[in-house]
């Protein structure tokens, strides 16, 4: 079964993302900050990490870099942020992100992005 960790400090975004990801067959866990996201991932590595940028404790870039520094293969990382400019997107890609969703998003965008990283057909 495909699994996802949704890391976002906004409960509304987590709820929207969960409802969309569940329709694509993901079993979802949620994290409210970067450290919690990292801990949950290391406990049991998900297929997908949907990762906000600005979060308490550790930001999304920190989480991505920490996971990419781990020896075991990490999840597909899909940044999901309001930082919608080229420099931020490049920074996320350099930190190991596989795709990038600019907020606001809807299910069509998320589906296209999941397809782009091979997680839906």
């Amino acid at each position: 079964m495909k699994t996802a960790v949704i890391a976002d400090d906004s409960a509304i975004i987590r709820r929207i993302a969960r409802s969309i990801l569940e329709t694509f067959g993901f079993a979802c866990r949620e994290a409210r900050d970067g450290q919690e996201a990292l801990d949950i991932c290391r406990q049991s590595m998900p297929t997908l990490l949907l990762l906000d940028w600005e979060m308490p404790e550790m930001d999304g870039i920190g989480v991505a870099m920490a996971l990419r520094a781990d020896p075991e293969p990490g999840p597909k990382i899909l940044f999901c942020s309001t930082h919608n400019d080229l420099l931020h997107i490049q920074q996320a890609l350099e930190a190991g992100s596989d795709e990038y969703v600019m907020k606001p998003f809807d299910s069509a965008i998320l589906e296209d992005k999941l397809r782009s990283i091979g997680l839906v057909n």
Partner: peptide, 23 residues
């Protein structure tokens, strides 16, 4: 628009082939 460039275009191609006009 930001919406349009997210429909079917992998972000690596966005970075490679597009200029950011701010929105």
């Amino acid at each position: 628009s930001q919406f349009e460039v997210q429909r079917g275009l992998p972000v690596q191609r966005l970075v490679k082939y597009f200029e950011d006009l701010g929105g």
